[in-house]
């Protein structure tokens, strides 16, 4: 806590920590009382929660990457390839290796894409993501081509088909990664990255190395995506290129726009909201893209800082009322 107090506002850090714990508690309670389907949906939600908090780490450096889901695919494919013959590495170990593989690939991508800014960065990461997806398709001997790799197993310590046990694993990973991103965000390096995100030129004039800081943020965020990809393919039992599509990328970006990215709880709020919308409209799936698009537009126009901005406004008005009282 001393480190947090020194480097960031203790209140916001605590709020982020509370968010991580609330997500874990909320998901656990729902899973305990919910149906098998709900438990499965919560696994996917929790994996997506890892994805959005790792994505948020990238956005702190001032760029919105569109390669995040493809990099998630790198982690997924690493788990599939390494856990199957002839490698036969234990699945639990491959989760970590998947994260490392995603980090490595993102480090290679960082060199060209981080030379761009604003919409050029968006376009270059989109192109990089598509290139990665093409690699999943074209390197058939390794990746299984468009059909992918099927029948990937759960880790040995999780009983096959036991969704609750798998959910516990995902929540444990979410907690560890959440804590890591939280501490990183609150550290001196994390603050410097946010400073670069706010004003790169000014940060450089203060002696910071923006490229290095941005690359670090890009790589660390990608490691989380790789781990999330590994968990997803193990849970689904299959990895295929189509699962790392621009549609999922749009969902992650939408969660960050609707929820906000200033704090860790923003994208989680956004993801929760979008997941509820998706479930509410499951009988009429053709309306989901329309509703999501509308929400993103509404958030951009009326709630520029997303739901977290709304929470902040509510909190401020409550404090003011108390003072007046």
């Amino acid at each position: 806590m001393q480190l947090f107090a020194k480097l960031d506002s203790p209140r916001t850090v605590v709020l982020d920590l509370v968010t991580v714990l609330v997500v874990i508690a909320g998901v656990s309670v729902l899973a305990a009382v919910g149906s098998s389907y709900l438990q499965g949906a919560l696994v996917i939600f929790s994996i997506n929660a890892i994805l959005v908090i790792s994505y948020r780490t990238i956005t702190t450096m001032g760029g919105w990457s569109f390669a995040h889901v493809a990099i998630m695919g790198v982690g997924g494919y690493a788990v599939a390839v390494l856990s199957k013959p002839p490698m036969d590495i234990p699945v639990a170990v491959t989760f970590a290796l998947g994260g490392l593989a995603a980090g490595l690939v993102s480090a290679l991508l960082a060199y060209p894409v981080l030379r761009t800014r604003q919409y050029y960065f968006f376009l270059s990461t989109f192109a990089a993501g598509e290139a990665l997806r093409q690699c999943f398709i074209q390197f058939r001997q390794l990746t299984g081509g468009t059909s992918g790799i099927a029948f990937i197993e759960y880790p040995a310590f999780v009983q096959t088909g036991d969704t609750l046990q798998f959910l516990a694993l995902v929540l444990a990973v979410f907690f560890l990664l959440g804590l890591f991103y939280l501490m990183f965000d609150a550290s001196e390096t994390g603050m410097k990255i946010r400073a670069v995100g706010l004003d790169e030129t000014l940060s450089q004039s203060l002696g910071m190395n923006p490229w290095r800081l941005r690359a670090l943020s890009f790589v660390l965020g990608s490691v989380g995506a790789g781990v999330a990809g590994g968990l997803l393919v193990s849970y689904n039992g299959i990895v295929a290129p189509a699962d790392f599509s621009p549609e999922l990328m749009f969902k992650i970006v939408a969660a960050c726009i609707v929820g906000g990215t200033r704090r860790l709880y923003g994208p989680i709020l956004g993801l929760t909201f979008l997941t509820i919308v998706e479930e509410a409209f499951r009988g009429v799936p053709e309306y989901v893209p329309f509703v999501w698009g509308g929400l993103v537009l509404a958030a951009t126009l009326y709630v520029p800082n997303g739901l977290e901005g709304l929470v902040d406004r509510l909190r401020t008005s409550l404090v003011r009322r108390r003072r007046h009282a």
Partner: peptide, 21 residues
């Protein structure tokens, strides 16, 4: 049930809804 455009992950999600729910 929607499977997006025949993607494996969405197919599985749709099956979970259909069978488990």
């Amino acid at each position: 049930y929607d499977n997006a455009c025949y993607t494996a992950g969405e197919e599985l999600t749709a099956f979970r809804r259909a069978i488990l729910d």
